[in-house]
Design a protein around this nucleic acid. Structure first.
Lengths: 241, 241
DNA sequence: CGGCGTGTTGACCCGAATCAAGACCGGTGG
DNA sequence: CCACCGGTCTTGATTCGGGTCAACACGCCG
């Protein structure tokens, strides 16, 4: 079984002007003059590790933008089978769906700070500031592109290729201004990675071990992976092993 | 290897007012007064079975809306592995991506008629008619939801469950005004279905055979599936076999 | 009628799942 | 400080579902 955690979290008024994550957020493209309007309809929510922002079946009232921290999107089948749909961090947004209820749960993998918008409030703004709508739509299209990549990965790649693809993706997502280039911090467990890639945690562990043995990566403390041979990792991820 | 077909197709001026697919299209929500503007930036394209509307790597200049016919979206790995991302028909739209090049190919599975928009032209309209942008964005979000379902299906379901899920999906997508309720017309091959579900064509064939033997479906001519026991099919698709 | 693309079915094999044991690591309390 | 404990990770042995290989059936078209 999988722990669901406790829904909840603290709330406080947002101040978009001082938002540290601004350049990577939904509001990235907006001129400062629009911020007050945005400020009026947004609020900050903080969660502790293990809490859920929402779970499958909740009415899809809100859209969120991650300010700081990590979270995991997942779906659970009746019999406990779990599929992880993504790992999100600063700048990512979530909660947008065409359906009236979320089909996913969003759980904090660390202490988490997010910016929350009521969807209907957002609709109002969108008509007034088309540029915002465009940015919003563009981010949805980006998520779609990411999901297409994921479908290819889990539909047609073997275990080693999937794990390598996962590492390449995490590598590429890291911001350029990065304290530790060449090494990746993975806040999620092996089970989370396995449920993301359609594998078991044992298979993920074995894939890491193989890449370690081949000198492609090295591992400190299980959650910090050092990429020793970037080119070879990419080859592995594409099946040119 | 997989045949790529020939890119091409005939062109003619669109007349949105008389479009038979209107209620299911991108333009569904628009008042008649907006149609001339839409008309001005759209054109109809017709393709024959086997032709490609676009292939991976083409610049993503256009967005399309299917008026009539079927098509298949797929991605090809260097070594020939193929993943099918979807089967589209009347009302579906395609070609929208956050990237400058398509990461998919779109091939006609039958003679095909689509409505084509240049993306930048569309951007202009979107600012003028926010309702249109909303409809457009809503359809993108719908595609994203569909992809999340697909990820769960291929990541966590076994062969029989995947094929059952595929049939349930095709069943639900059929319009209410339907000449043959309880039976599904599948224009794609077993290999296409296999590449959609992350299986082999043999495994798909065996799954159909098992469902036939159990009295859940019957099959005429391989491309017409009759659903004999809808409830049991849904159970199968969810792993309550 | 023959040929080819597509679909079905069977025999066998292999990669990842499952089952199981032990190692590691961080946190807690004596 | 160290002993203990629970959660996580690694590694090995075995099993099994679906892939692979192969033969044949079907249906369509020339």
């Amino acid at each position: 079984m999988v722990s669901i955690g406790v829904r909840g979290g603290g709330y406080s008024q947002a101040t978009c002007l001082s938002c540290p994550a601004r350049p990577r957020m939904l509001c990235a493209g907006l001129d400062d003059e629009f911020l007050p309007a945005l400020n009026a309809i947004s609020s900050k929510v903080t969660l502790e590790k293990g809490e859920n922002l929402f779970i499958e079946g909740d009415r899809s009232t809100y859209v969120y933008n991650v300010i700081e921290g990590f979270l995991r999107l997942s779906r659970l089948g009746q019999d406990g089978r779990r599929q992880v749909l993504g790992f999100l961090t600063t700048g990512d947004y979530l909660g947008h769906t065409s359906r009236s209820e979320y089909t996913l749960s969003a759980e904090a993998l660390s202490d988490l700070k997010v910016c929350r918008f009521r969807r209907e409030d957002l609709q109002g703004l969108l008509s007034t500031y088309p540029r915002f709508e465009r940015q919003f739509h563009h981010m949805t299209a980006g998520l779609l592109d990411d999901m297409l990549d994921l479908v290819f990965t889990i539909g047609r790649k073997n275990a080693l290729e999937r794990v390598a693809s996962f590492l390449v993706y995490q590598m590429d997502r890291k911001s350029v201004s990065d304290t530790m280039p060449g090494s990746i911090w993975l806040p999620m467990t092996r089970a989370d990675i396995a449920d993301f890639l359609g594998l078991t945690l044992e298979t993920v562990s074995r894939a890491f071990s193989r890449m370690k043995k081949n000198g492609v990566i090295s591992i400190d403390h299980a959650h910090t992976i050092n990429i020793l041979d970037r080119g070879r990792l990419i080859d592995l991820s594409e099946g040119n092993g």
